[in-house]
C-alpha cells in the first residue's frame, strides 16, 4: 500500500510535468515556423485556429492517421526502437530541471551530469534510425550526426566545467542559487556564446543541420520514416531543443531566479521566469535558423575541434586561475 501511494504521487508529478512539456513542444514548433516566416516577410502558418495556434495539432492529427511504413529490408526492431529512444531520452531529462527551489521531480546530487549524460545518449536514436533504415541517405546522415554530436559534446562538457568551477556543486538547484548575486552570463559571456552555438550543433539545428541537409541527403536519418514514427523523431528533436534552452537558462541565465529582487517582480513565481528565459533562448534559436546559411561539413568540424575546444579549455584555465588567485574557489 505504501509503495502504491508513492507510485501514484510520483506518476501524478511526472504527468504534471510531461503534459505541459509536450503541449509546449507543439506550441514551440508553431512559434519556430512563425518566427522563421516573419524574418523572411511571409505569414507562416496562420490558418488553423487563432493566429494558426492549432497548426501543430492539425499536423499531429495528420501524422497519426498516416500509415506507418516499415521498409522490408530494414532491421525492424531497431527501426521501431529508434524514434522511441529519441523521444524517451528527450523527455526523461526534464526530471532534473528545477522550476523553483522545491518544484523539481528528482533533486539529485549530480543533476548537471545527468543532463549531460542523457543529451549525449541522444545520438543513439539518430544512429539507430539511420542504420536500421538500410539505405544510403539515412546512413550518411546518421554518420554525420554521430561525428557532429560527439564533437560538440566535448566543448559543452568543458563549458559545464567552467560553470561548475564557480559553483562547487553538481546539483542544479545549487547552480541556480550560486547566481543570486550575478548571472553567469556576465562573467562567462564568451562561454555563453560558445554554449549557444554548441547547443545549436548538438540539437542538429540550422546552420548545423547537416544530418538532415535536404539539398544533399533528402531528409537524412528520417528519410525512411513515415506517419507517427516520423512525428516522434520530430517531437523528440524539438523537446531536445527546449531542453538545451532550459540548460542554457539554468547554467547562464540564473534559472528560476528573477532578474531583480524588488517588490512586484519577486511576487512572480520562479517557474514563470524560467519559462521566459527558455522562450528567450528559443527565439534566438529560431532567429539563427532564419538568418544563417548552412555550414559546410569540414567547416563544422573545424569550428568544433579547432576553435571551440581550445577556447573553452583556455577559459577553464583562466576561470580556475582567477578564482584561485582571488581566493574565491567555492570550498565547503
Amino acid at each position: 500500500m505504501e509503495y502504491l501511494s508513492i507510485v501514484f504521487s510520483e506518476t501524478y508529478k511526472i504527468l504534471f510535468l510531461l503534459v505541459p512539456v509536450l503541449v509546449s513542444v507543439a506550441m514551440i514548433v508553431w512559434l519556430d515556423r512563425r518566427i522563421w516566416a516573419f524574418v523572411q516577410k511571409r505569414q507562416g502558418p496562420n490558418v488553423v485556429g487563432p493566429f494558426g495556434l492549432l497548426q501543430s495539432l492539425a499536423d499531429a492529427l495528420k501524422y497519426i492517421f498516416k500509415e506507418v511504413i516499415i521498409p522490408s529490408s530494414s532491421n525492424k526492431i531497431i527501426f521501431i526502437l529508434a524514434p522511441i529512444v529519441t523521444m524517451t531520452l528527450a523527455l526523461i531529462s526534464w526530471a532534473v530541471i528545477p522550476f523553483s527551489a522545491t518544484h523539481v521531480i528528482a533533486d539529485i546530487n549530480v543533476g548537471i551530469l545527468y543532463l549531460f549524460a542523457v543529451s549525449s545518449l541522444g545520438v543513439y536514436g539518430i544512429i539507430m534510425g539511420g542504420w536500421a533504415s538500410n539505405s544510403k541517405y539515412p546512413f550518411l546522415g546518421s554518420i554525420r550526426s554521430a561525428a557532429q554530436m560527439v564533437s560538440y559534446e566535448v566543448s559543452i562538457g568543458v563549458i559545464i566545467i567552467n560553470v561548475l568551477l564557480c559553483v562547487g556543486s553538481l546539483n542544479l538547484n545549487d547552480i541556480v542559487q550560486a547566481q543570486e548575486k550575478i548571472w553567469f552570463v556576465i562573467p562567462l559571456f564568451p562561454m555563453f556564446v560558445v554554449f549557444f552555438i554548441s547547443a545549436l550543433a548538438e540539437t542538429n539545428r540550422p546552420p548545423f543541420d547537416l544530418p538532415e541537409a535536404e539539398a544533399e541527403l533528402v531528409a537524412g536519418y528520417q528519410t525512411e520514416y513515415s506517419g507517427m514514427m516520423y512525428a516522434m523523431f520530430w517531437l523528440g528533436e524539438y523537446a531536445n531543443i527546449l531542453l538545451m534552452c532550459a540548460m542554457g537558462a539554468i547554467l547562464f541565465l540564473g534559472g528560476w531566479l528573477s532578474p531583480i529582487e524588488i517588490y512586484p517582480f519577486s511576487l512572480i513565481p520562479g517557474a514563470i521566469w524560467l519559462i521566459f528565459k527558455i522562450l528567450f533562448l528559443f527565439i534566438l534559436f529560431a532567429l539563427v535558423k532564419a538568418i544563417v546559411p548552412r555550414y559546410r561539413y569540414d567547416q563544422l568540424m573545424r569550428l568544433g575541434w579547432k576553435i571551440f575546444l581550445p577556447l573553452s579549455l583556455i577559459w577553464v584555465v583562466l576561470t580556475a586561475s582567477y578564482l584561485f588567485y582571488f581566493n574565491l574557489l567555492p570550498i565547503n
Binding site: I108, N109, V110, L113, Y114, F116, A117, S120, L121, V123, Y124, I127, W131, F139, I143, A146, A147, V150, E153, G157, L170
Partner: peptide, 26 residues
C-alpha cells in the same frame, strides 16, 4: 556511487560506444 555511474554513462556510452558503433558500421 552516482558520480561513477554518470561518468560511466557519459564516457563509455556517450563517447566510446559511439566510436565502436561507428567503426563496426563503416
Amino acid at each position: 556511487a552516482e558520480f561513477i555511474g554518470m561518468i560511466m554513462l557519459i564516457v563509455y556510452v556517450g563517447a566510446v560506444a559511439v566510436l565502436f558503433l561507428f567503426v563496426v558500421m563503416m
